[in-house]
Design a protein around this nucleic acid. Structure first.
Length: 947
RNA sequence: GGGUGUAUAGCUCAGCGGGAGAGCACUACCUUGACAUGGUAGGGGUCACAGGUUCAAUCCCUGUUACACCCA
């Protein structure tokens, strides 16, 4: 016997274990022979992260699709894994070191620090995956991958080398977005521009050899220390005579030119702008056009460096600003201050640190080249976005894609497989100072050594500890010495004669490895194929790649989706998935983003603890309409928890009434209209859920299932079955018991993708009697009852439901006590109505609380009347009902019908409508009119009888 | 500044060229043999505003307003 309520906490862990034991999550579990494949790769969560509500939604949707397709007999793989999340993880470990008062990252050194990170990964890395398991995620855990696994790292190196060799990855000195806290470059996407109340300071610069001044405006006065020019528009009348003159930069004393460049906007401020090429992206370009060599005034921590006057060195950028303003004011240079809204670039993650444009050597990907085929894939429909509107977002970004900065000055991540060595004097670029060291890129040290030996014509030494290790410095110095001498054949000959050991110091060339690591998204970009074994040609890769659907939030469409498209097309030649399903972001019930600081975070694990995984999942699915965000209200979760209980109790009711599954039961052999009807309803519900899931309309799927289970099966079928169960007709009872058990099976299947735990538990419970179940629900077949609708049964049950509802409605409105039994008189019944009344007499009596049912040709006086079809159903309530109220009730209905008839008549009397509207629309209107007229006439008659 | 999206019941949201819907909330009644995490009945909407297209507009088009998000 089932308990009165379902206890999720008592069941979920056991069920999950049973699935694992049965190998139900394994790739291909339950697949029909020769089945189509269906694969999804999980968006890998941060390895040291924990589950938030967005993950819960994301993975619920994936699990619904996976369970659905698995039940449909496809060969399914859900590929799980985690991401090393370079910046986030490194920050966490650094913070922990600080909290525990241990040596800092730099004090520990690279190797020791990385050991600590791996230890932390080992300690906390399983958390989020365990949380996904609590949600019921049926991923193939035996195939779990991590972005820094050896295989995936090999894929990263292969891709890096491949792109490098094609010229699609290059190293360059550029202005990049610099994070002064982490002291690393970040990509454009990792910067969020936030509108802030700022100021515009107007500075009057003196002009050399003149009494004139030129006024420039800036939001960042401290950067004046790095000013290299003042620009005016070439057509600006006001400044023609100043172009070419020199400004003496206050405080600094540097002479800088006044240049003509269209970047200066004559309309803005004074029309003259200061140019600081090392600290502003626009200024950098201006500087390049005019051959200005950028002057960097900041350290990697955004403190003023030695390129500035001594008084400012070491000051933080904001301290420097204060000091400069004081000094400029004292000099009379600062002439005016405005308030101004300015966009300040913040670190996108924490929104705490202001990002600084900073001039450094970095690695870049020529994203524009890779974007071309990725754009075509979507334009030509080989990959589709759901909802489709995101395709425009994708186009807009991809069409204007900028070079992708992929190097990070971090330690946790994939170290860039590049080595640097000195240039030979025979190298064509030897005298080009800007060319920098000679770079060797290879997917292994052996490959690099081979290349380097070919270049140098002799052995090389590999220095892994970086540019500053004493061994490297010494070796490099030795090489440079010999290298210099070799520039002249004469000197070289002399040297060899003087120094018999010259040969030795000449013999090995020191190479050092690039210390930087790659952007985390570089490895994520390979996820769909790297997890399946690429670059090896594995069976998984052949079978499950390309994948089918990518399920993700729209916030990482650029970070991740676009980049997967690019790398997959470049390296595998196919789109990594045919569909990208973008779900909404989960917000709180007030529509605000959830954040720890606001304290409005809904922890999915709390929801699971309190309401169960099934209710949590169902809520997320039911709210997953295709939109930008969804607001999660606890009341909804509660409601779906109630739904779980409802299902549980329906099963309990069946159990109590001997509804056992029957061997050889065939739904098409049902005799009773009630059973024919519920089979048809199930058929429609299954079709609706299936179609909705095929279209990724999870809310529609959930609602259709919910409506059928609660609104049809529980509210009507079970209620109507009650009199049969307690009745004498054994044949009817047997058929209904078998049908009820059969429908429950269909329901369990239908709900399983949404509510896997309670359905699996009930599947087991109901499997204890009747024919033995041959497998778990998770790998059972998705239901399909097509062709079992029955029009007559539908009409009959619809009639019954209308009648019961009608009587109940009258009873309530007439304030008939709920317990009181009343008489029903059927007037004007034809053969159909008579048969139906007789067939459903017990149900009717019970549900409408009737004392007895009589037939008559005369309507009793002062009665409430219900018109259905040709018959009028009369509740003789003389003395009980208020005639006035009953008249009002009927009159209201008549009014409604009159309105409708008027509306339809207007249409039908319009010759335009009749001539232009489609035939079936006209026909439908006529039919609706006829029904309305009949019903109105009946109601009018009823009304007349009341007076 | 550019772009995208949204505006429907008190709330959260579906829907859609031809009858305005759901869940929650609300009101009233009901502990009837699965379920009070329940049942029954009920109230509630100029479908943001203004034009246009159409025989017909909540739905399509244009504009306005408000809000949200993305990009610079």
């Amino acid at each position: 016997m089932l308990e009165k309520t379902y206890e999720p906490s008592a069941v979920e862990a056991r069920i999950y274990e049973a699935w694992q034991q049965a190998g139900a999550f394994k790739a291909g579990a339950g697949a029909k022979p020769g089945a189509e494949t269906f694969s999804i790769v999980i968006p890998p969560p941060n390895v040291t992260g924990s589950l938030h509500i967005g993950h819960a939604l994301n993975n619920t949707i994936q699990d619904i699709l996976i369970r659905f397709e698995r039940m449909r007999g496809k060969d399914v793989l859900w590929q799980p894994g985690t991401d090393h999340a370079g910046i986030a993880t490194q920050m966490i470990v650094e913070r922990k070191l600080m909290e525990q008062q241990q040596p800092s990252r730099r004090e520990l050194g690279r190797d020791e620090f990385l050991k600590r990170v791996w230890a932390w990964k080992a300690e906390s890395g399983g958390t989020i995956l365990n949380q996904l398991k609590r949600l019921g995620a049926s991923a193939d855990w035996s195939r779990e991958r991590f972005t820094m696994d050896e295989g995936l790292s090999e894929a990263v190196r292969k891709v890096f080398v491949g792109l490098y060799e094609k010229g699609l990855i290059y190293r360059a000195k550029r202005l990049v977005n610099w994070h002064p806290g982490l002291e690393t470059a970040v990509s454009d996407l990792e910067v969020e521009n936030i509108e802030t109340n700022g100021k515009m300071w107007h500075l009057r610069y003196p002009i050399e050899g003149s009494e004139e001044t030129i006024t420039v405006a800036t939001t960042r006065p401290e950067t004046m220390l790095g000013d290299l020019a003042v620009a005016v528009h070439p057509d600006d009348e006001r400044y023609q005579h100043l172009i070419g003159k020199m400004v003496v930069l206050p405080i600094v004393g540097r002479r800088i030119p006044i240049i003509a460049d269209t970047y200066a906007d004559p309309e803005l401020g004074s029309g003259a702008v200061k140019i600081t090429p090392a600290h502003d992206f626009n200024d950098f370009e201006v500087g390049q056009r005019h051959g200005l060599k950028p002057l960097n005034i900041f350290t990697t921590q955004a403190r003023v460096n030695a390129n500035a006057p001594a008084a400012y060195r070491g000051l933080d950028r904001f301290e420097a600003r204060k000091k400069i303003l004081v000094e400029l004011e004292g000099l009379g240079v600062l002439v005016w201050v405005d308030d101004k809204k300015i966009m300040v670039p913040y670190d996108e993650k924490t929104k705490q640190v202001i990002i600084e444009p900073f001039l450094t050597d970095q690695w870049f990907v020529k994203a524009d080249v890779l974007a071309e085929p990725a754009l075509r894939s979507v334009r030509e429909g080989r990959t589709k976005f759901v909802p489709k509107s995101y395709e425009n977002t994708y186009y807009a970004w991809m069409e204007n894609i900028k070079p992708w900065t992929i190097s990070r000055q971090l330690w946790w991540g994939h170290q860039i497989p590049a080595w640097y060595g000195p240039r030979l004097n025979t190298d064509p670029e030897f005298n080009n100072g800007a060319a920098g060291p000679r770079v060797f890129v290879g997917d292994s040290e052996e490959a690099v050594i081979r290349q380097a030996e070919a270049y140098y014509g002799r052995a090389v030494d590999m220095f892994r500890d970086g540019l500053n290790s004493t061994e490297f410095v010494k070796a490099f110095h030795d090489f440079e010495t010999t290298q210099r001498d070799r520039t002249s054949a004469q000197v070289w000959t002399l040297r060899k004669q003087k120094d018999p050991f010259a040969e030795m110091s000449d013999s090995r060339v020191p190479l050092h490895r690039d210390e930087d690591v790659l952007d985390t998204w570089f490895s994520s970009a390979l996820w769909p194929f790297s997890t399946m074994g690429w670059p090896e040609d594995t069976p998984e890769l052949r079978k499950y790649y390309p994948t089918d659907v990518l399920v993700t939030g729209f916030d990482i469409i650029f970070f991740w989706v676009a980049r997967m498209m690019m790398t997959a097309l470049e390296f595998t030649g196919v789109e990594p998935f045919h569909t990208v399903y973008m779900h909404a972001l989960v917000r709180d019930e007030k529509g605000q983003k959830m954040s720890k600081t606001k304290g409005n975070v809904i922890d999915p694990l709390n929801l699971i603890d309190e309401y169960g995984a099934d209710a949590t999942r169902f809520t997320l699915a039911a709210m997953a309409a295709q939109g930008r965000d969804m607001r999660l209200a606890i009341a909804r979760v509660e409601g779906y928890r109630n739904f779980v209980t409802k299902l549980w109790n329906a099963a309990r009711f069946l159990e109590m009434n001997g509804c056992v599954r029957k061997e050889g039961y065939a739904p098409w052999r049902n005799q009773l209209a009630l059973n024919k009807w519920i089979v048809g309803e199930a058929c429609r519900a299954i079709a609706a859920v299936t179609r909705a899931l095929d279209e990724y309309k999870f809310n529609e799927a959930a609602n259709a299932a919910y409506e059928f289970v609660w609104g049809q099966f529980c509210d009507w079928y079970l209620e109507l079955a009650k009199p049969i169960f307690s009745g004498e007709d054994e044949a009817a009872k047997a058929e209904t018991q078998a049908t009820a058990a059969y429908i429950l099976d269909q329901i369990l299947k239908l709900l399983h993708p949404f509510m896997p735990f309670v359905t699996e538990e009930l599947w087991a419970e109901t499997g204890k009697s009747g024919p033995a179940r041959d497998k778990l629900l998770i790998i059972s077949e998705w239901p399909d009852l097509r062709g079992l609708e029955n029009k007559e049964a539908d009409a009959e049950l619809q009639w019954l439901i209308t009648l019961v509802t009608g009587i109940r409605s009258v009873r309530q409105e007439m304030n008939v006590p709920a317990g009181a039994k009343v008489q029903l008189v059927v007037v004007g019944a034809g053969l159909d109505t008579g048969t139906r009344v007789e067939a459903h007499l017990p149900a009717l009596t019970r549900l409408a609380r009737l004392e007895r049912v009589d037939y008559s040709d005369i309507v009793p006086k002062d009665s409430a009347q219900i018109v259905i079809g040709e018959a009028t159903f009369v509740l003789p309530l003389a003395g009980v009902i208020d005639i006035f109220v009953e008249r009002a009730r009927l009159a209201k209905d008549v009014d409604k019908l009159e309105d409708e008839i008027d509306k339809i008549d207007k249409k039908l009397n319009n010759p335009q409508f009749v001539s232009k509207a489609p035939e079936e629309v006209i026909e439908e209107q006529k039919q609706r009119r006829e029904e309305a007229v009949t019903r109105r006439d009946r109601l009018k008659e009823a009304l007349d009888r009341l007076s």
